[in-house]
Structures are given as C-alpha cells and as structure tokens.
C-alpha cells in the first residue's frame, strides 16, 4: 500500500545504530529494497536470491557469493570495489549503492540473525511474506 515502512525497517536494520531515529538522523542509511509505485499499483522489490544469480556471475571481485546451504546471495562489502557490474547484471534492479566515502553495492541479505527479515516485520499489510524453498525467498504481491 506504498507506505514504505519496509524501507524504513530495512534502513534501520542495516544501519550502524539500529535505532530508527538515531539511524535516520545520523546515518542516512540506504534501503536494500525499493517500493515501486504507479497510481494505485505498488510493490516492493528486492533481491530474489536467484538460483543462478547474474550478479554473482558478473561480480569482478568475487564479493558476491551464494550460500549453498541457505541459498542466500551474499555481498561482501569489504571486497566490493564499486564497479557496479552487479547493478547492470541484476534484471530486478535490486542492488543499490551505499552512501559515504567508499560507496559499495548493497543488497538484501535476508537480515542475518533475525527470524523474519526487517522489511517483512515492518509491513503492516502483510504484503511482504517470507516464503521457503522453491519459491523465491521473499515473494511480493501487488498488494504491497
């Protein structure tokens, strides 16, 4: 419903302070998902954690890997040099750039350490649902 609380949740989760006010006021964090809107239609998009992740194929540094256990496609910001090949490779437009002195690529990491990703938890309308297995890790509905 385009409230964009998922983005708020994501930003806070991926901030240094992990405090909604402090993070926003001090850090200007970047959301790893994006709500797209066009008239009444809206939905959130983020990394699908593809079986065959084009971003990983394209990553020139080896910063992007796919965890064979969890299926999560991870991005190691330490290794990333910011060539943005992954951004060009991702057909979902789900990788973004961080702010700051040394910008790196940033993407959904399924919120390690959380039972439910922050975006899913933040969604007041259950438009974001965590789904397992064959389905994409986070599925989205037009209701978002």
């Amino acid at each position: 419903m385009a409230c964009r609380l998922c983005e708020v949740g994501c930003k806070v989760e991926h901030s240094e302070h992990k405090h909604v006010i402090k993070s926003f006021k001090r850090e200007k964090p970047v959301a790893r998902l994006l709500v797209e809107e066009s008239g009444p239609l809206s939905f959130a998009t983020q990394c699908r954690h593809c079986d065959e992740p084009a971003c990983m194929f394209g990553c020139i540094t080896g910063a992007i890997t796919k965890d064979p256990e969890t299926g999560i496609v991870n991005l190691n910001a330490e290794k990333c040099i910011g060539c943005w090949t992954c951004i060009l490779m991702c057909p979902y437009g789900s990788i973004t750039r961080t702010n700051g002195a040394r910008p790196t690529a940033a993407k959904c990491d399924m919120c390690p350490g959380r039972e439910v990703p922050a975006c899913v938890e933040a969604c007041p309308n259950r438009a974001l649902v965590l789904m397992e297995d064959e389905e994409p890790a986070v599925a989205l509905e037009d209701a978002a």
């Binding site: 994006l34 797209e36 066009s38 699908r48 979902y92 437009g93 389905e135 994409p136 989205l140």
Partner: peptide, 17 residues
Amino acid sequence: GLIDLPEEIRHKKLRGG
C-alpha cells in the same frame, strides 16, 4: 522500474527466482 514493464513480464519477474 519493474512497475513500468508489461503486466505479464512484471508478474513473471515478481514471482520468478
């Protein structure tokens, strides 16, 4: 954005993995 794509392709993308 994905939202600009034709509906069929958009749906495939939103559900596909």
